[in-house]
Write a protein that binds this DNA or RNA. Structure first.
Length: 189
DNA sequence: ATAGGGATTAGCT
DNA sequence: GCTAATCCCTATC
């Protein structure tokens, strides 16, 4: 099993090719690292709040947040308890229970769109606010490390506003050439 | 007490 | 490409 007590920037590329599973299974092809209090792009940059508390909690748990009034997104918490950090699951390929995933994602025209984007991925898995803070060992959700190393590339993070979105933080990782990676979009300056 | 904004998506041009 | 949808958290008064 992956060591999640380390720097999210180290953990992130190792999550590529891993499988995240609820009643739907998804192979992860794109992630972003957020380094908590030392990262201007992170929700934890301004310290502990009720919203981001899960990121300060123990590694191997979930940080789920609500965004734009309608979407859930899921992070895997990294670093030891007390040190905020996480890896945002940005995109993946549904590899089991397509039927249920399609039911949850009626807007998806093709299987490719089932989990191509952070909120889409969360929706396909059935993740909502009740998953915030729960453990990967809770039984509701499970992470299966990839058997073999996967090729990865990195670049600037998507949609991050302010200084955290600059090329100084190339903490988005994806599997090059994979069709399930989401389109790149610069953040607002 | 209230205003402003966000690690996005879908649908239309 | 552009923009509406829509709500929780945070900051500020």
């Amino acid at each position: 099993m992956l060591d999640l007590t380390r720097d999210p920037c180290e953990v992130a590329p190792e999550l590529l090719g891993a499988v995240i599973r609820t009643d739907v299974a998804i192979r992860i092809v794109e992630v972003e690292a957020y380094r908590g209090e030392v990262d201007p792009g992170s929700h934890a940059f301004r310290g502990l709040t009720k919203r981001n508390a899960a990121m300060f909690g123990p590694p191997g748990h979930l940080y789920v947040y609500y965004i734009y009034g309608m979407h859930w997104s899921a992070n895997i918490v990294c670093w030891p308890e007390g040190q905020a950090g996480g890896v945002l699951l940005r995109a993946g390929e549904v590899i089991d229970n397509h039927e249920l995933a399609r039911e949850r994602r009626p807007a998806a025209k093709t299987d490719r769109d089932l989990a191509r984007g952070p909120a889409r991925l969360a929706q396909a898995l059935g993740i909502d606010g009740s998953f915030n803070g729960i453990s990967l060992a809770s039984g509701r959700i499970e992470l299966l490390a990839s058997g073999e190393p996967v090729e990865s590339t990195s670049g600037p993070r998507v949609g991050v506003s302010g200084a955290g979105g600059t090329a100084s933080y190339p903490w988005r990782f994806w599997i090059p050439g994979d069709r399930h990676v989401s389109p790149y979009r610069p953040g607002r300056s």
